[in-house]
Write a protein that binds this DNA or RNA. Structure first.
Lengths: 217, 217
DNA sequence: AATTGAATCATACGAACGTTTCAATCGAAC
DNA sequence: GTTCGATTGAAACGTTCGTATGATTCAATT
């Protein structure tokens, strides 16, 4: 077995530290110290800190979205000409994310969650490049699973889905503290078993129209 | 009418800039420049940057959680000894958040969303101090609205709720771009009309047990 | 008119940052 | 054994950061 290269050690350390402390609060000196590399190695292998951030994401996001596509392919092949089950589409979207999060001891999960919140052109570009095709593909699948849902409502519900996913991945520690240890997310399947039915029910909810369903004034 | 004081102008500028760029990427010099104040004013009125961050949150979170409690009081008074409607509890939790977000042109909304993601002891303390009582109170209300839900499942679903809320508030711009302008969130009621039914259906979903509902292997 | 205390100001300090430079080191090819 | 490109190393660059200091302004009070 080969020892991991300096480049990989830097990527590993950056992934972990970025997830723990955020991007602005993680210095290249901290990263290289943890990686056992020289400070200049970052600018040697990558060109800048921004490029390092992009590389950290690109390493995981490519395979992750590929696995999502593969699972969706299998779903659609199984469905044939029949309808698509919303639970299957949700699982194709969620399971790869939680699996990569779990393999990496959830460090990359926090990173993913952070990307949706953090500002800056860097993340908007990462988002477009890495998620563009995935978004189009899953939008079609969701439409096929719930054809009666108006397009606008579909966007809203996908937005809620992203939120639940990002916060669940980023804040599993929060949950363990809040529930006083009752909720344990050490196994990805445990999370999916609860998240998928919750979201599926939300997606199947009747479309709200006209006035508000409840007002507390 | 009085002009806003220097202290308030600093809080306003900090709120906006923290929401736009994050905490680490916003310097005190940028804040004081936007506020039309001197750099030293921050350390004069507040003691440090961390204390300024806390002050920014404290100014909004107190009234926000108070309004949540008030709305929940009204819900429970209306319900009497009868059951509590999950939609009412959700609205009491969500509406004040979206209203303060909307009044502030959604700048504080992004801030709130960011707080759940950003690391650091500062936010954990803010979270405990500001949301402790609210959490306990709403946990009870959710239990009363859905008494058949096991405690562990309830924690999970509240976790998903927080995620959908935080990401919806923080990423309304994302949604507008992704939906190509189809989804507009300029009115808080528009968001609530879609978020509450989605979440209510998720909370009412049957409790998952045993094996997984769907596997794509 | 003199005094006081809060508020604002220009300025400087030390530390940490991303980045750059250039010499030292290493392994493989000739 | 020498050469050469790839990699690593130590040190410094200029910048920006949060914070601290001491002078100055100014309205209210004596």
């Amino acid at each position: 077995m080969d020892l991991p290269t300096t480049k990989d050690r830097i990527l590993d350390a950056a992934e972990r530290l970025f997830g723990d402390r955020g991007f602005a609060d993680t210095s290249l000196r901290t990263i290289t110290a943890e990686a056992g590399a020289n400070l200049a190695a970052v600018n040697y292998y990558f060109q800048s800190k921004d490029a390092l951030i992009q590389a950290v994401f690109a390493r995981r996001l490519g395979p992750l979205n590929q696995e999502r596509m593969d699972m969706l392919d299998a779903c659609e092949a199984r469905a044939g000409d029949g309808p698509l089950l919303i639970e299957d589409v949700l699982r194709a979207f969620l399971e790869p994310a939680f699996k990569v999060g779990h393999e990496r001891a959830s460090t990359f999960g926090r990173l993913l969650g952070r990307m949706y919140i953090d500002p800056g052109d860097i993340f908007e570009r990462i988002f477009r490049e890495q998620f563009g095709a995935t978004k189009v593909r899953f939008l079609g699948a969701f439409r096929r699973a719930l054809p009666e849902l108006p397009p606008e409502e579909m966007f809203w519900r996908m937005h809620f889905l992203i939120g639940a996913l990002a916060h669940t991945m980023a804040g599993l520690h929060h949950l363990k503290v809040t529930s006083e240890g009752l909720c344990d997310a050490s196994n990805p399947e445990t999370v999916l078993k609860r998240l998928i039915p919750f979201l599926a029910a939300g997606f199947r909810a009747p479309v709200p129209q006209g006035d508000t369903p409840c007002d507390a004034n």
